[in-house]
Amino acid sequence: MEHIRGKVWTFGDKVDTDLIVPHAYLTTDDPQVQVQHAFESIYEKFYEKVTPGDIIVAGINFGAGSSREEAVYVLKEMGISIIIADSIARIFYRNLINLGILAIGIPGVSEHVKNGDILIVDTMNGIVTNTSNKKKFKFQPFSDQILTLINEGGAIPHLRKQLRKH
């Protein structure tokens, strides 16, 4: 997982959790319904277009709003490999890490990335390279705690392991 390579889907500023999973689909007991409607007002049938390993690049305050973890669950189901945004809302960021999806806030990054660009993320050294325009962006490399969570598939598998140990 030292290098993540993927195709980009771009999103604008302040894409809130209501836009990611509209509240109308929150009561369902079939999470696939949430996946099928994710981002529907931005990209119709996004789940059919996205391929596992793709990267989301967004503007400011990505994931603002409600604490609904469904908004991260759908990204996991779609196989999104990493979220890069100018800034990421606090609860959403925690939820991403908890479900095992890497996320990076890099102010101003969204200006330099287009839909379909191919990015390479060097997680050890903290560098994002946009292979389409050769631009590079630095970020604070992930802490060991975060990398452990991601490697183990998120906070629940991690906790399961811890509880077993005791």
Binding site: R68, E69, V72, I91, R94, L99, A155, I156, L159, L163
Partner: peptide, 14 residues
């Protein structure tokens, strides 16, 4: 503060 479902599970367990 507000948290998501996984954080709630962690608190329930620990």
């Amino acid at each position: 503060t507000g948290v998501g479902a996984t954080d709630v599970c962690i608190v329930f367990a620990t």
